[in-house]
Structures are given as C-alpha cells and as structure tokens.
Write a protein that binds this DNA or RNA. Structure first.
Length: 426
RNA sequence: UUGGGUAUAGCGUAGCUGGUUAACGCGUCAGUUUGUGGCACUGAAGAUCAAGGGUUCGAAUCCCUUUACCCAACCCA
C-alpha cells in the first residue's frame, strides 16, 4: 500500500517510543521555571505578519527569507511564528499583563516554523521552550535568567554544554560601534563575500558572524563591541558577570556572539554543545529593552531565552543522559473465552478509575497470545479470567517478572484490593 | 539557493563483474495437543527492488531524467 503523501519536508513525527524523552525535558523545564516564578502562557501558532516584521526585524534572514507567510481567505497576511518572543510580547500587551505587578515572568512551549533547508538539528517545524521576563532592569535579572537555563541543564545531567556571553550594548553605543566596524571593514570591502558586502551598511555586526574563510579572517582583528560600550552598558555587563560569578556559573565572554534577531540589547548569550554536530546552539537569548515599545507598548524592558528541544534531545542522547522511564501497563487481564473477556473488560475499567494502566483483550486473541502480548507490552502483572474465576470470584495475580502468583478476590472492591496489594509489593 | 550522498518487505541490511520463484536479521501473526509470557523450533503474511525512460534475448544490477530523503555550506533553536 502506498500512502498518499509523506510528512512535509523538514517536519518530524514524535513517536510513542520516543515521547518519554519529551516528557522528561518538558516537566524539568516547566517545574524549574516555576521555581523562578514563571507562569505558563500559550499564544497562537500564527500571527499577523507585521508582528514579526517589526518584532523580529526586517533586516533579519528569518524575516526576509524564512517565514511561512500566506494570505488568509480575507486577504490578511498571516505568518506561522518563526520564534516565540514576538507573540508573547504581543499577548502581554494586548491583555494588559504589563499593567500588573512587575516583573512579569512567563514561560512557554511552542512549535516554530522557518522555511530553511533542513539538516541535522535544523527542521522547518521545531519546538522551543522559552522564558520571557518583563520589567526587570537590573543586571541581576540577566544573570538569573542564565542561571535558570543552567539549572535546567544541570537537572537533566547535561555536561557538554558551554555558556558564552556578550554584550551588544544599547542603540547609542552600538551606533558608535557600527561606525567603527564599517570603517574597519571598508578597507577589505572588495574581498568580502557577496552577502557581507550587502550587510556592511545595513547590519555590520553580522559580518563578525560570517563563516566564509575570508570574512572570518577579517573578523579576528575587527574592533570589539566591548571596547565601545557606554558607561551604563559596561556597568550592566560587568554586574551580569559578577553575579554569574557569585552564582558559581562558569562562562566565557565571546565578543563575536551576535544574535540573529534584531531586538537584542545589552546581554546576549548562547549555550553551545560541542558534541552535536554543527548545529551546536541549544539555547540562545538575551535582553531586548526596545522590543515592547517597538510592538506598541510603553517602554518596558524585557529579556528571555529560547531552547531548541530537538537539539537538546540530540545532545542528551549523545551524552546518554537519563530520562524518566516511560509508563507501562500495570495489569493485563486475559479472558479464556469471549464471555470472560467481557468480564475482564469490566475489571479493567475499575482499575482505570483508580488511575492504573490496565488492559484486556480487544482483538479476540487466544489466551496464550494474550499473555504473550502482556509480556510484550511489559505489563507488570497479569491475570486470567475464565468460568472458574467468575464463579469463585477469585483469580490469580501473576507477577510477570518473578512469575509468582497470588490469589486475589475479583468481587466487590476489586480495584481497591489490587491497589493495596500492589502498594505492599512496592 | 549551492555542493556531496542515499533510495530493495513495518524497521535494519545483503544482492549491484546483468541470467530462472529477490535473500537475511528484527518485528507482526499463527502453531509446537488440553487455561498462562519471556527461550527454542516450525510455518504464514508482507517488496509493482523510489518513479519514468533507454540499452539488452534478459535489468534490483548498466545509462539518462525526475522525485524524495540525508549530510554540509548558509542561517539559527
């Protein structure tokens, strides 16, 4: 049989056999974020296109060539979110969240969409865990945010991830830095790669990031942003660093970290894995003090990060990190004949009402095949129901690991009795 | 968008100096007597060998085209 079509390019199914890994990461991230006072928010998968044009920035590659944009039936331009921050800012503004007590701390899990050429660690639909904090001006907030990521990785027992931080200053000091950069690069202008030539005027910081051999060789001696920070920005950055020091979080300052989204100011950071191929950035973030205003709110500072869950799982797999084990069947109840199977179905229902994972035959298999199936799904216990059991109201509970059998009543309060027996065994 | 690679049952592979019914492992289903799994044995189902075209008496195998996927550049999570 040929299926009509496959999953679209750049998408990936998350199958039942792997999903426990997602649960592990999600519950760790959510519970740790909550210890920091974050509350979960969910925003729409698609937004009006201008939100991303303004929020993410018109000059970015993400907006220029990677967005899934289309017109809806009324002709409105709609875009599948390419990242999480803009939508959260919009939602916070629209619902007046910024008028409540600040700081506002939010976290979210979202799928994001970017029309890129897929490769290892890079999908067209990918999942992020993100945190956004609003109204926290102090550099301690920056350190706290980084600390949260660090806590999550530590909790997941991840080791091979390094933190790199930088400051890209405020619009004021960046303007001076841009001038210096342009001047520096102008002497090499003829030798720059095509895209860098274009970027020189519009967004010169991107040149530092260019991977082409020639451009990156120029980047080595390029002026550093850190020498151009104004006093406020320099103070801010140094307090971020000293706070990280006092939190005992190790980092390296990498003056060439330039994030790809326009909204960042001051602190930017990346958590980079060295053991996961070429797409090493597992988490990236920073401060974006101008963004809320850009989207139409009052001037409220913001900062946040986004973590790529697919990439995180790649790194965890590579490091053999432990996951919460998947939940499996507690008790399988087999029936020797159709009538007994129907009876078993009733027993199974009672167990499920108490929260047990319980199954009985729904495919009409022989008794032997049912037990075989119970083994295959790793059922902890099994039980056979036949005419004798129904008449005597007693059955044997079998421990599938040890083979031990125990007589139990299948009459009134069946599920409660099973419950207390299983509690004893544990 | 630009390079490189791959395409054979549900999954993983062999076969690729062209030659009769395309093989193996895992998985699935059934059986190895009577109401109990894991092991072993037996058997069954399951593949228009990515698609289209060409060379040939004959093509999974050689040639061309297309498509899909993977990897990388780029970009970013």
């Amino acid at each position: 049989m040929d299926i009509i079509t496959k999953a679209p390019r750049g998408t990936a199914d998350k199958l039942p056999s792997e999903i426990y890994k997602w649960h592990t990461v999600q519950s760790a991230a959510a519970s740790i974020a909550e210890t920091y006072g974050c509350r979960e928010i969910k925003t729409p998968t698609f937004e009006h296109t201008e939100l991303f044009q303004r929020g993410v920035g018109d000059t970015t590659d993400v907006v220029q060539k990677e967005m899934y944009t289309f017109n809806d039936k009324k002709g409105r331009s709609i875009t599948l979110r390419p990242e999480g921050t803009a939508g959260v800012v919009r939602a916070a503004l629209e619902n007046g969240l910024l008028n409540e007590a600040l700081p506002l701390k939010l976290y979210y899990f979202t799928n994001c969409f970017r029309y890129e050429a897929p490769q290892s660690g890079r999908l067209r639909e990918f999942n992020q865990f993100g945190v956004e904090v609003f109204g926290a001006d102090s550099p301690i907030a920056d350190a706290e945010l980084i600390c949260m990521v660090n806590d999550i990785f530590e909790f997941l027992q991840l080791k091979g991830i390094k933190l790199e931080i930088n400051s890209i200053g405020c619009p004021k000091c960046r303007a001076k830095y841009y001038d210096a950069l342009k001047e520096y690069y102008r002497q090499y202008e003829e030798q720059l790669c095509g895209t860098c030539k274009e970027r020189l005027e519009r967004n010169p910081m991107r040149l530092l990031d260019c991977k082409s051999e020639i451009c990156s060789s120029f980047a080595k001696n390029a002026p550093s942003i850190l020498d151009y920070l104004c006093e406020d920005c320099a103070d801010h950055f140094s307090t971020v660093k000293s706070t990280l020091d006092s939190m005992n979080i190790s980092y390296t300052v990498n003056p060439r970290i330039v994030r790809g989204l326009d909204y960042y100011t001051n602190t930017v950071f990346e958590f980079v894995a060295d053991n996961c191929g070429t797409q090493g950035t597992v988490c990236g973030g920073g401060r974006y003090n101008g963004l809320v205003e850009e989207i139409g709110g009052k001037s409220v500072s913001g900062l946040g990060f986004a973590m790529g869950i697919e990439r995180l799982l790649m790194v965890m797999d590579a490091e053999n990190c432990p996951y919460d084990p998947p939940k499996e069947c507690d008790l399988y109840i087999a029936g020797t004949d159709p009538n007994s199977s129907a009876y078993a179905a009733g027993l199974v229902r009672q167990l499920r009402k108490l929260g047990f994972r319980a199954e009985s035959d729904i495919v009409g298999r022989s008794l032997k095949a049912q037990i075989k199936y119970a083994d295959k799904i790793n059922a902890r216990f099994s039980m056979v129901i036949g005419e004798n059991e129904i008449n005597s109201k007693t059955a044997q509970l079998k421990n599938m690991k040890t083979g031990e059998k125990l007589n139990v009543s299948i009459g009134d309060n069946f599920a409660e009795k099973i419950n207390s027996i299983l509690m004893d065994i544990e």
